[in-house]
Design a protein around this nucleic acid. Structure first.
Length: 391
RNA sequence: GCCGCGUUGGUCAAGGGGUUAAGACGCCUCCCUUUCACGGAGGAAUCACGGGUUCGAAUCCCGUACGCGGUACCA
């Protein structure tokens, strides 16, 4: 049909009444012929019979009045040749049966809305028709078009909420959940992609959202997805989340690494490092040295400025740990600074080497807190292990 | 092509006749901290274009451009 019409100069062939009037179907065949064909089981579909030139208007809660003219609409298939309904028929019946009051869907459905509206009318159910709302789309961060799974794979971020495998294949895309997004952060991030309350507030709890959300403030235009912003949301929620709960979420990471842990200790570490985490599993990246000795020591960061005097300082300082009133961060820092001053070395020049002895590199929370946390014996052990490497 | 829907910094966006055009992410500088992060102070960067209407348009109207969506016996 399309080829024939194209040949006639019709470059935008539609499957509508005008075209169908010239084809072999129930419009052109007599009732008897139709009945006979049906009897013989001739393959056929059932289509909607669009009015030829009528405006179909409806109110979209987000866009206001939207109008389509039926002359631009095709006679869509309602029942396929195999007897199965198409989406158009199914969705109307389903919504009717389920007494749906509000139909929210993506903007890509807007063009087929008039078909559904007409179906509601034809079926005589207009008084039960739901209210319509067509939400703006989430667009790909670069270039144009709606966000797809491929973009996530290409740019390295999740697109689906959870891990999603393509049936019949081994491949699957990592979900937001598996990547370490907290559910509340995910919802919050998603909501802000198409709505805001005008106050400038961006972090909303679920309860606040329920209270403050209003359809009137939903945007009409699509929003490009920004993974950096998504990570920021998660980071905000990590900071807000209770340490004990966060530690619980982190425990699987430790289990996977085969590390024995104590709930109270893990919670303590979580509290110490969470402010630099965007994801739960980053607690490990920022605090692994609390659970095991560092595998590598950044010797090069220390060696060039290393002196025998510094070496002597650490030996003397460590040997005095037993005299400390208590092995805690305050006492350690005090004695550290006192001895450094007494030896004429700037405390600051000694702190980085000490950090590297304990952590293996230039990272981690306050160094004296680390010492207190891992304990006296472990602190001494790490100093003794590192000292020979610096010389 | 046709139909529909859109268009405020790089991104998310507030603002709907008179504003120095909010805020957030990201980026840059500085402070705090001899790590990083958090926190704090700054900075660069915006009303797609052309016509109207108006004393005055980012704001209202009309075009244009651009973008997106749809145009399946998919959903």
């Amino acid at each position: 049909m399309r080829e024939v019409e194209k040949a006639k100069g019709n470059h935008a062939p539609q499957y509508n009444r005008a075209i169908r009037g010239a084809m072999r179907n129930s419009f052109t065949l007599s009732e008897a012929e139709v009945a006979e064909l049906l009897e013989k089981g001739a393959p056929h579909v059932v289509r909607i019979n669009m009015p030829e030139n009528e405006d179909v208007s409806f109110t979209d809660m987000i866009r206001g009045t939207v109008t389509f003219n039926t002359s631009t609409l095709d006679d869509k298939v309602l029942l396929k040749a195999d007897g199965m309904p198409t989406y158009h028929l199914a969705v109307v019946i389903d919504d009717y049966l389920m007494k749906i009051s509000h139909a929210f869907r993506g903007e890509e459905w807007l063009p087929s809305a008039p078909i559904h509206i007409l179906l509601w009318h034809y079926l005589g159910w207009e008084s039960d028709m739901p209210q319509w709302a067509h939400l703006p789309l989430i667009l790909k961060p670069d270039g144009n078009g709606k966000l797809s799974k491929r973009d996530g794979d290409r740019l390295g971020f999740p697109v689906y909420a959870m891990n999603w495998g393509t049936p019949g294949t081994e491949t699957f895309t990592r979900g937001f959940r598996e990547m370490g997004f907290l559910p509340e952060a995910f919802v919050n991030m998603l909501v802000m992609l198409g709505w805001n309350d005008g106050s400038g507030q961006e972090i909303f709890s679920i309860d606040e959202l329920i209270q403050r959300f209003s359809i009137e403030r939903v945007h009409k235009g699509g929003a490009k997805f920004d993974f950096d912003k998504a990570k920021w949301f998660n980071q905000q929620y990590i900071q807000k989340t209770d340490n004990a709960l966060l530690a619980k979420l982190f425990e699987p990471v430790l289990k996977e690494k085969g590390i024995a842990f104590d709930a109270a200790y893990t919670e303590k570490i979580t509290a110490l490092v969470k402010e630099r985490c965007q994801f739960v599993n980053e607690i490990w990246d920022h605090g692994f040295f609390f659970f095991q000795k560092p595998e590598t020591i950044d010797v090069d960061a220390v060696k060039p400025k290393w002196t025998p005097e510094k070496q002597a300082f650490f030996e003397e300082w460590a040997s005095g740990f037993d005299q400390l009133p208590e092995f805690n961060a305050v006492a350690l820092e005090d004695s550290f600074k006192q001895l450094a001053t007494a030896k004429g070395i700037k405390p600051g020049e000694l702190q980085m080497p000490f950090r590297i002895m304990l952590c293996g590199g230039k990272f981690g929370p306050q160094v004296f807190v680390i010492a207190e946390t891992i304990g006296k014996a472990e602190t001494i052990a790490r100093i003794q292990h590192a000292l020979p490497l610096f010389a």
